[in-house]
Every structure is written in C-alpha cells, then in structure tokens.
C-alpha cells in the first residue's frame, strides 16, 4: 500500500458517498445515469468475486464490502426507491455498445483463461467505459448539478491517483499490471474533457456546469 493508492481509494469512496447522499437527501435521482450505476455495480461484482476465496487484508475486505454495498444501494435508490425521478428519457446510452467489445476483449486479452481471471479483466475494461452513459447524459441535457460534478471529479481523480500508484509500484517493487494500467489510462483520459470543464466552470462559476 502507498499514499497514492490510499488517496485513490479514499477519493473513490468519497465519490460514491457524495452520489448516494445526494440522491438520498434530495429524494431524487434527476440527472443521474442509472445505467452507469448499474455498470459500476457490475464492475464491483465481477471484480470482487475473490472476496470469499482470497483474504488479502482487513482493509481490502472491508473496502470491497463497502463498495459493493454502496453501489447496490445507489442502484436500488435509482431504480426502486426514487424511480419516478429517474430521467430514463435522457439516460439513453446504448450500453450494449460497451458490453460487447469489453466482453470480447476480456476473452482476448487476459492473464489466464480462467473464469475468475476473465471476469476480473472484464471488470477492469468495463470500469474504463462505465462512466460513458453519465457523461453522455450530461452532454444530452447540457448541464449537471454541481454536486454531480463533484461526484465525477472524485471518481475521475481516483483512477488518476491509481496511475501514480502504478508508477510508484513500478519504481519501488518492480511491479506492473499492464491490463490495469492501460485500462486505467484510458479511463482517466475519458475524464479529461470533464476535468477541463470542472476546473474552468464549476470551480470558478460555483454554479451548475452548463455545457457550451
């Protein structure tokens, strides 16, 4: 464990909590892409299958349980509890365009052709594109509430910090995980456009982020 990975995990946790609290307190999931949240729940489900077979550390186990619980709670709030505030008419990204390539690639590119390894690889590739429906929804509505942009900021920051963690691990323990690194870089690149808008509009304007 290093400071970059710890900061990344904290940033990820903060992002998930920001979103969950926003939906819970505003009793509404307007402007939130339910599809992205389902994809994130799928990412955690397929990545953390080793939760019951491999014990790495208390921290690792606790965080996996927390991420799974909070992501399913968020999906529950969107599709069950506050489903009448869900903007399904704006959440129209075709997720099959994400799932088919990701499934295909995880069968082609993996460390071992075993179910656990392929599912882990699937979760890594899926996480890189899981935010697409949310970013698409924002471009479609042309705006995002500032709390949603803070959620996206911490979510994008988490994988950027993981990149720093991978650089650190490469130099300190000669360890690198090519699949995670390539996917993590792609994932962070997808956030760059948002980061630009976040720094130039939200932090300065302190209001809604309205797209040009």
């Amino acid at each position: 464990m290093n400071v970059f990975r710890l900061a990344g995990d904290v940033s990820h946790l903060v992002a998930i909590i920001i979103l969950l609290l926003k939906i819970w307190r505003s009793k509404s999931c307007a402007g939130i892409s339910g599809k992205s949240q389902v994809l994130f729940a799928l990412v955690f489900t397929t990545r953390y299958l080793d939760l019951f077979t491999v014990f790495i550390s208390v921290y690792n186990t606790v965080m996996k349980v927390v991420f799974l619980a909070l992501s399913y709670a968020t999906v529950y709030l969107i599709y069950m509890r506050f489903r009448n505030s869900y903007n399904s008419e704006n959440d129209t990204f075709r997720v099959e365009f994400l799932l088919v390539p990701v499934i295909g690639l995880s069968f082609l590119e993996n460390y071992a052709f075993t179910p656990l390894e392929i599912l882990w690889t699937f979760s890594i590739f899926l996480e890189a594109v899981a935010i697409m429906p949310q970013l698409f929804m924002i471009t479609k509505t042309g705006e995002a509430e500032s709390i949603t942009t803070h959620y996206l900021f911490f979510l994008g920051l988490y994988r950027a910090l993981y990149i720093a963690n991978w650089v650190w691990r490469y130099h300190t323990e000669s360890f690198y995980d090519l699949i995670a690194i390539v996917s993590g870089v792609v994932q962070t690149i997808f956030f760059c456009d948002f980061f630009y808008l976040y720094f130039t509009r939200v932090l300065r304007g302190r209001g809604k982020m309205t797209l040009p």
Binding site: W120, S174, Y176
Partner: peptide, 10 residues
C-alpha cells in the same frame, strides 16, 4: 519484474 494481475488492489 513482477508481472501479474494486481489482485491486491481494489
């Protein structure tokens, strides 16, 4: 170089 899935990461 240790090159494997980083399963200790979240």
């Amino acid at each position: 170089l240790v090159f494997s899935g980083s399963k200790d990461e979240l």
